[in-house]
Design a protein around this nucleic acid. Structure first.
Lengths: 178, 178
DNA sequence: CCGCTGAATTCAATCACTGAACTCTTTGCT
DNA sequence: AGCAAAGAGTTCAGTGATTGAATTCAGCGG
C-alpha cells in the first residue's frame, strides 16, 4: 500500500517483503530498533528524517506486526516502539546487508561497528553465525561495539549513546545525557 | 546519488548499502539476476517496470560494480547484465529477505519457490546454509525449484521459463519459447 | 499562567516514478 | 531495394512521494 502499486512478480516472496520493508528509511528504522532506539524523538534525532515520513513508517511497521507500541508513561500518554518477534527475525537480513556494505563500501580505517557473539567475543560472519561456536546467534546474544572506523564524536546524542558497547535490543538509557 | 540526498547516519554501513541497493526495483533486479535473467527485455517482461527505471537501475548497478555488461552479439551490439563477484555476495541478504517474506507473508498453500543445496537436496535455512551438510552454500550450488504455492501458469515467458528446476546464476535459455 | 516536551499533522516545493510514445540500429522477409 | 520487427534504449507529461519548515495539541513543571 505505501508505494502506489504492488510490485508485479508477486509470486516472489522477496517482492512482498520489499513492499513492506523496502521503502526509503524503513530498514534504517528497523536497524535502529535493533540498536535499542525505541522513541519517536530518538529515531528523529538519529536518522534526521522528516517527521511525516517517520510517522508514516512507524505506522505501517506497526500495522504489519514488525513493531509494536508499548506505553511507557500514562499521564501524557507516550508509547515506545519495540520490535516484535516477527521484526526480530529480520536480523539475519539486516545483518547480511550491513556486512555487505562494510565489505564493499567500508572506510579504509576498518569497520564502523562490530557485532560479536556475547560471551565468546567472536565477530559474526555474514550469515550471522559465530565462527567459533558454529551456531547461529539471535540478536539477543549479539554485542555491538564501535569498530576502528567509527566516528568518535558524532553530533547527535543518540549516536553518542550508541558509542559504548551494548547488547542488541537493549533499550537506550533515558534520558540521553552527553 | 540515485536518491537525492545521502542517508544521514552514514556511519552505518547499512545506510550506504541501501543508498545503492535500497531503491524501488533494485533488489528485484538483483534477484532476477540470481535467477538467471540477463537481458534487458527479460527483466522488462518479468518485472513489468517502466523502461526508464530499468535503464537507470541497470546503469547504477553497473557503475557500482554489482552488475557488469557482457557483449553477447556484435552486429547489433547487445549486452547482457551479469552479476559480478560483489553482486553475487548479495545472495545471503537477498535470500534472508525472501525467506522472511515466505515465513510471514507466504501463501497458505506453501512456499512459492524452494532453494535447495544441489547434490544433497536439503532446503536452505534463513542464513543460507544447508542444515544437513552444515555448510554455507554459495549461489552457484543452489538449486531453485517451484514450491507448492507457485503459480502454475504465469502470464509472461520469463516466469514460465523459471518454472522448471534450475541452478542459480544459470542463464535463461534463449530464445524463450513456451 | 507561561513555556516546554514529545508526538505528531499540514503544506508548498521538489524529486522520483509511471506509462506511453518515440528513436535508432540491424536483421529477416519479400 | 523496401518494409516490418526486435532489442535497447530515451523523452516527456502526469502523478505520487519525499522534504523541510511551520503549526498543532496535550499535559507538565514552576
Amino acid at each position: 500500500m505505501p508505494l502506489g502499486k504492488d510490485y508485479a512478480a508477486q509470486s516472489c516472496s522477496l517482492a512482498r517483503t520489499l513492499e513492506l520493508v523496502g521503502e526509503r528509511w524503513t530498514l534504517l528504522i528497523v536497524r535502529d530498533a535493533f540498536y535499542g532506539v525505541r522513541r519517536y524523538n530518538d529515531f528523529l534525532v538519529h536518522l534526521a528524517l522528516p517527521r511525516a515520513v517517520l510517522s508514516a513508517r512507524l505506522r505501517t511497521l506497526t500495522e504489519n506486526g514488525v513493531l509494536e507500541t508499548v506505553r511507557y508513561q500514562a499521564s501524557p500518554p507516550r508509547d515506545e516502539y519495540q520490535l516484535t518477534a516477527k521484526g526480530r527475525e529480520l536480523w539475519p537480513a539486516v545483518h547480511a546487508l550491513a556486512v555487505w556494505g562494510e565489505q564493499h563500501h567500508g572506510s579504509e580505517k576498518g569497520s564502523r561497528r562490530d557485532f560479536l557473539h556475547a560471551g565468546c567475543g567472536t565477530r559474526l560472519d555474514q550469515a550471522g553465525r559465530c565462527p567459533a561456536c558454529e551456531t547461529g546467534v539471535p540478536p539477543e546474544d549479539v554485542e555491538m561495539r564501535p569498530g576502528p572506523g567509527a566516528d568518535r564524536a558524532p553530533a547527535d546524542a543518540v549516536s553518542r549513546a550508541l558509542l559504548r558497547p551494548r547488547m542488541l535490543l537493549e533499550p537506550l538509557p533515558q534520558p540521553l545525557n552527553a
